[in-house]
């Protein structure tokens, strides 16, 4: 069930500028804090008691590892949007327009012609 939790992390971080800034600054600490303040909450009063990350999911989020997230079937729209928000401008300044996105596509090239992992849960 934790693929849902990975998606929940990406979704709730991406929609809030403060969480986006924290995740860029210190991903490991932000993930710990997010679990306590956001992840385990269904709403402000109700908890979801059984959701958690595996060690590998936690590592992939700490490393912004889109290759792993793609292979895992996390929803592409969530981490594409968030990671572009985190890194694309820095890369563009240093290496030219779209350089982050094109490097991403290049690193996933081994998937061309193969069925992609499903984003269904």
């Amino acid at each position: 069930m934790s693929k849902y939790y990975v998606n929940k992390f990406l979704y709730t971080i991406d929609r809030d500028p403060e969480w986006v800034a924290r995740y860029k600054e210190d991903p490991a600490a932000t993930i710990d804090r997010w679990e306590k303040e956001v992840g385990i909450w269904l709403n402000s009063a109700e908890k979801t008691t059984w959701l958690s990350f595996t060690e590998e999911e936690r590592r992939a989020l700490i490393d912004y590892d889109y290759e792993w997230l793609f292979a895992y079937g996390a929803h592409f729209f969530l981490y594409l949007t968030l990671f572009i928000g985190l890194f694309a401008d820095d890369w563009a300044e240093e290496k030219g327009p779209l350089s982050y996105q094109l490097e991403w596509a290049r690193r996933l090239a081994p998937w061309i012609g193969k069925p992609y992992p499903s984003v269904a849960l």
Binding site: F77, L108, W111
Partner: peptide, 9 residues
């Protein structure tokens, strides 16, 4: 294509 090898071609 979004998030895959064929994006931004």
């Amino acid at each position: 294509e979004l998030g895959g090898p064929l994006m931004f071609g």
